[in-house]
Design a protein around this nucleic acid. Structure first.
Lengths: 351, 351
DNA sequence: TTGAAAGCGCTAACAA
DNA sequence: TTGTTAGCGCTTTCAA
């Protein structure tokens, strides 16, 4: 049995109220008693009971962080930033991993209510995001990486369409004209990146082909294999909407015996450490990970201060990290591509 | 204000005890009341207050999982296994990330006591591991990946010396004779892998060179740069004791303009997804991640059942995944190596 | 500045 | 099977 505040009070010869005050530091306690209480705490090996404290004080001092996939460096980086800021504000963080699974999302949202958390930062699947706007949730919520359909929730996301445009303009400048994109189907960011991809292609007069796949290496790999094998005209460049899919794309290119970028260029989202080590290095969009986490916390804290604020969506700009995987297309291939039929009115056209 | 069990009781026209019993399912409640209580719960939007429940019932139903670095796929994989098993046993998991920082370790261990957790699974730094044996901790503890010096704590780790031996025997069989090893200095596993490396080299008559570095990409990279530049005789193979350091090794080889494996072979620990994509693929020791997590939970649950058990250390075997980065050494290079002086009594000899 | 006492929401005796 | 009641450990009035 661990000792309670009562034990400390008895040993120190004071009331429990005085011990409580000494611990919280909110009201003044005479130095004399302070010393005795300190000694009593050490003597008894007292540890405050957080459950009791939370129950009585009616605030948990805890925020929830519900993330889609901790194997994804994006989310681990964001979580570090969130935890840093939370810690500076004396808040604890409950970290949960949903594996992009709506059932787990529901479980964790329920848990957050039962823990009476102060607020939650959440990267929901599309499926759950859709229900969020009409749902009555017991705590302030800030979405990251993913948004709700009607923008009724605070959210912090990459400026996805701008990022897609950067990537497409880069590929265009390098001479690529036939580009295939693989997008995650589980999250709103996959959709936004897809839409930006399509819009940029339309504007630049590029031929494209797109596919949505589950957020798994294998799914991307399989999709790209089909793309590379079953088409008479191979895409000149492949784009993946996140780090996981990018891995699948590289695997598929390897398996097909294609050299990057000689046979096919590759680009994607998420500047993960390994991307610089693969082949000539992979061109990627780098997200401001730290800023996303810190901003999400700021938005949450402001929301706690002022619940009446209208919902806010913050877009943070990405950076295009150019590496060898998108080296300029060889002239003969460019000529080749320019001969082929270029449309600008049918962005989804299959080549 | 959220509603309490009292509100539910009032709406359902029963006592709070009956509602409590209905919720816990431990004692029988008549179907008639059950229905009314269900309706009342829905009507009031009741959510149990976990703080109150834990305070009164005197068990938290929570285990702590304190990990050294969530960016390391080893730890995220282990955490998934632990959470799976915990969930099956109706236990919650508090996941904490120490960044290999002893201060954070102390903070989180204290937190675990204040949360009154049922038990903890912990991957400590060497510094903290050293204090663990004499410390009086308020909960059962199972170490993973790292052990305490006197083996007074339950622990689940890779069979590090066997794994090092596998790697060295493979390199030996491929014709490599001059091998350098980079080891993490923060954890006991780095030490164990180093010791296995040295022992195997001694047995096989290999020339080796070793270095301990902080667990960071840059540290490994810097160390390897020195190794490659400042020696007249370059090592024929480089070994890294974890995924992070392996990345640094590859970076350094790249930066030095050395081809893998033609100019220098590379091998390491941790079969991370990216290792198959780098160059000809990297030869690595694959750890049984899932098994490590599940075993740690089993050990913890057994310990909770029977606190009197003696401390147990479980070693799990790894697997050597051979890829192109350790292709057989070209014959002329082998001859070269065999001419050079081979010692078997000075494992730390610098070549 | 200190203490007495109420009570946060819940579970678990005990009684009926 | 149900209700009454005490009390988990703490914070927070209120009074002294």
């Amino acid at each position: 049995m661990s000792s309670s505040i009562k034990d400390v009070a008895r040993v120190a010869g004071v009331s429990v109220a005085t011990v409580s005050r000494a611990l919280s530091g909110v009201a003044a306690v005479s130095p004399k008693l302070m010393v005795r209480i300190d000694a009593a705490i050490r003597e008894t090996g007292y540890r405050p009971n957080l459950s009791a404290r939370r129950l009585r004080s009616r605030h948990s001092g805890t925020i929830g962080l519900i993330l889609a996939d901790l194997r994804n460096p994006f989310f681990t980086a964001v979580s570090r930033a969130v935890e840093d800021v939370a810690y500076q504000h004396g808040l604890r963080v409950i970290l949960c991993n949903t594996d992009e699974n709506p059932d787990k999302e529901a479980i964790y949202l329920k848990l957050m209510e039962e823990e009476r958390v102060t607020g939650v930062i959440f990267a929901p699947t599309r499926q759950t995001a859709q229900t969020l706007d009409q749902r009555d949730i017991g705590f302030p919520l800030v979405l990251i990486d993913r948004v709700s359909p009607h923008g009724q929730q605070d959210a912090v996301v990459l400026d996805n369409s701008a990022a897609s445009a950067m990537l497409m303009e880069h590929l265009h400048a390098q001479g690529y004209r036939r580009i295939a994109g693989i997008f995650g189907n589980a999250s709103s960011s996959g959709i936004e990146r897809h839409d930006g991809f399509v819009a940029a292609a339309l504007r630049l007069g590029l031929q494209i082909q797109t596919a949505f796949v589950p957020p798994q290496i294998e799914a991307a790999q399989t999709e790209v294999r089909h793309l590379l094998l079953e088409r008479s005209e191979r895409p000149q460049a492949l784009v993946a909407s996140n780090g996981l899919l990018l891995m699948g794309v590289v695997r598929a290119a390897r398996a097909a015996g294609l050299a990057i970028p000689e046979d096919v260029a590759v680009a994607g989202f998420d500047n993960e450490s390994w991307t610089e080590l693969v082949g000539p290095g992979l061109t990627v969009i780098e997200q401001p990970l730290e800023a996303i986490g810190r901003t999400a916390m700021s938005i949450l804290l402001e929301r706690l201060d002022n619940p009446a604020l209208p919902p806010r969506k913050v877009l943070l700009g990405g950076r295009c990290v150019v590496r060898g995987s998108t080296a300029a297309l060889a002239p003969h291939a460019q000529a080749d591509a320019q001969v082929s039929h270029v449309v600008d009115s049918m962005p989804h056209q299959t080549f």
